[in-house]
Design a protein around this nucleic acid. Structure first.
Lengths: 162, 162
DNA sequence: GGCAATCCCGATTAATTTACTCAGGATTCC
DNA sequence: GGAATCCTGAGTAAATTAATCGGGATTGCC
């Protein structure tokens, strides 16, 4: 369970665009330079983000890419799911119903584990948006609110467990 | 971010062993039959689990594999980390220090995202052990305790957020 | 002792994915 | 007109995945 460069470069590029939101189109070669990524490779990645409606492009001189929505409207989960595909650890979670019967009986017991894992990763990634990254308010640890962890010094505003 | 067959088959094999814990060695071909996995492939997977000290093997007729510890002492995280490798989404999280300086400045901002993701997946997977799977008490949703979610009907015993 | 049931080990392989590179075309601004 | 862009599809080398294959070592049981 590693992230590929698609997810990593993709998020970095989107963060780069978020930092420059409102300044007009950002040419891809400047992002490639700053993020130390091959321009041609980045073009492929941006194509995915564009098709997903997360960025808008303008062609020609003075063209480039910009976020298609405000930074706070784009979550890390939106980006990573586009770049890496869905987080479903196993196929039977991808289907419509949560209660499809599996071929292996045992698999269905184990399946709850994968469902928990999927729900957790989605919750974490969807709880962070690009504006959070720009603000630098994202820290490495979850900050439980007083209700969740009475001994903690953190305020309820910061609670990220709910 | 999908799990490979190693992680999925590995967990299923371990669950199979847990169900038969205390009954002596379980031959691999019986596991392969039940779990619909190639015997030879399963042999490779079990070798990893054996080297990690999670299962013990006995050779010869009436030989087989059994859990090297009690089912409640082996977490899903133990198994998945052996089979899939560490969950670190990016390399700079794998190092000793949490504060190694990255080559890209932006990467370090984005890095907190990956750290959160890693911590979350570890927390989820380490919160489930093989006995839980055998008991069938693992459901798909986290059950917050009253302190965490006062409106919930769940008891404090079931809280899995802490 | 022999044999069947096991685990054990290393080599090989086909398919897929990853992470690019390459070549060139289309569009737009100045 | 030309430079700066985006856009597209093809190709590719390396790595990974998910096995398969062949044979060797060990042990329990008759």
């Amino acid at each position: 369970m590693k992230l590929s460069t698609r997810g990593r470069y993709g998020l970095r590029a989107m963060y780069d665009l978020a930092l420059r939101y409102g300044e007009g189109p950002v040419p891809l070669n400047s992002i490639a330079d700053r993020q130390m990524v091959s321009l041609h490779y980045l073009e492929q990645l941006m194509a995915k983000l564009r098709r997903a409606g997360l960025v808008a492009s303008s062609r020609g001189a003075q063209g480039g890419y910009e976020l298609a929505k405000q930074p706070e409207e784009i979550t890390v989960g939106d980006i990573v799911r586009v770049m890496e595909g869905s987080f479903d650890p196993v196929q039977c979670l991808s289907r419509d119903s949560d209660y499809e019967d599996c071929e292996q009986l045992e698999d269905c017991v184990v399946r709850f584990v994968w469902k928990r894992l999927r729900d957790c990763t989605n919750r974490v990634l969807d709880s962070i948006n690009l504006q959070d990254l720009c603000d630098g308010t994202v820290t490495s640890e979850k900050k439980p609110c007083e209700a969740c962890a009475p001994d903690s010094q953190k305020t309820t505003d910061e609670c990220q467990l709910s």
